[in-house]
Amino acid sequence: MSNQIAILLAVLLFPGGVFALVFGLAMKGVDRRVAARLQSRVGPPLLQPFFDIVKLGFKRTMVPAAANETVFLYTPLVGVVSMLIAAALVPITSVYAPDAAIGNLLVLLYLLMIPGIVLMIAGSASGSPYGAIGFSREMALMIAYEGPLVLIAAAVAIRTGLGLGGWATFSLNDIIAYQQAHGSFLFDPVMWPAVAAFCFFYPANLGIVPFDIPEAETEVLEGPLLEYSGPVLALFKIMSALKKVVVLSLGIALFFPAAPAGIVGGFLVWLIKMAVLMLVGITAVRLSMGRMRIDQAFVFFLKWPLLLAVASLAVVVVV
C-alpha cells in the first residue's frame, strides 16, 4: 500500500506532476529569454510560458464543424497523463529512484511514443487539411526516429546487462547503479555512437527546429494544433513542457548519471546538466539551423542515427 502511495506521489508531485510541469515551463521561459538575448533583443519575461497557460485558460474553446468532438477534446488529456507517468519513471541520481515495479526502460519507450500518437490523432480528428498534413509528417518522422531510439535503449541495456553478468537489463535503477560504479557511458568510447544517435533523436522527438516539421507554423500553420484554442491548446503546451523534462532527464539517466551522494548535491548536479543540455542542445540548435523538409529528415534519420545506433549495438554486443 505504501508502495502505491509512493508511486502516486511520484506521478503527481515529484519528479512528475507539479514539479515537472513547473520545471518544464520554466525551462521554456529560459529558452525563449536566452534565444532573444542571442538575437540581441530583450525577450519575454522569464515567466512568459506560465502567463501563456493562464491566458489560454480564459479563452473560448472552439470545435470545428468537421471535427470528431470527443476525440478532438480528450486526446490531449491522454498525452498529458502519459507524460506525467513517464516523468515518474525517470530516476534522478541520488535524489529519486522509481519503484522497481515501474522503473523500466521498455515501459518508458512506449510512453514516449504516446505524445506523437496524440498529435497524430488530434490532427486527424480536427478535420483540417493542415492537421492531416501534420499527421502524415508526424507519422513519417516517428517511423524514422523510433528505430534508432529502440536500438539506443537496447545498447544501453545490453551494456549494463553484460557488465552485471546477465544479458540485458532494462531496469533504470540498475542502469544508473552500474554507471555510478563503473563510470558514465558518456566517457565510454564503446557507447559514443549511441550518445551521438541520442543527440540526433531528441530534437526530433521534442519537435525542435531542424525537425519541427509536423508543426511548422510557417508551412502548415502548426499542423495538428491549428484548430485548437483555449484550455485544450494549453494541455498541448503542458504536454510538450513535460515531454522536454522527460526526454532530457532520460538522456542524463542513460548516459551521464554521475552525481555526488546526498539529495541536495544530486539535485543541483541534475539541474546543471539539464540546463546545459537545454541551452546547448535546444536553444543553440534551434537558433542556428533552418527547418529540414520531411523527405530530407526521413532520409537523414534512416542514414546517420540508425547507422550509429546499429553500430553501437554491434560494438556493445561484440566488445
Binding site: 472552439m62 500553420l221 502548426e222 491549428l226 485548437y228 484554442s229
Partner: peptide
C-alpha cells in the same frame, strides 16, 4: 506571432 487564427488574441 501565431500561425493559426484560433490561437490569436
Amino acid at each position: 506571432y501565431c500561425g493559426s487564427p484560433k490561437h490569436a488574441d
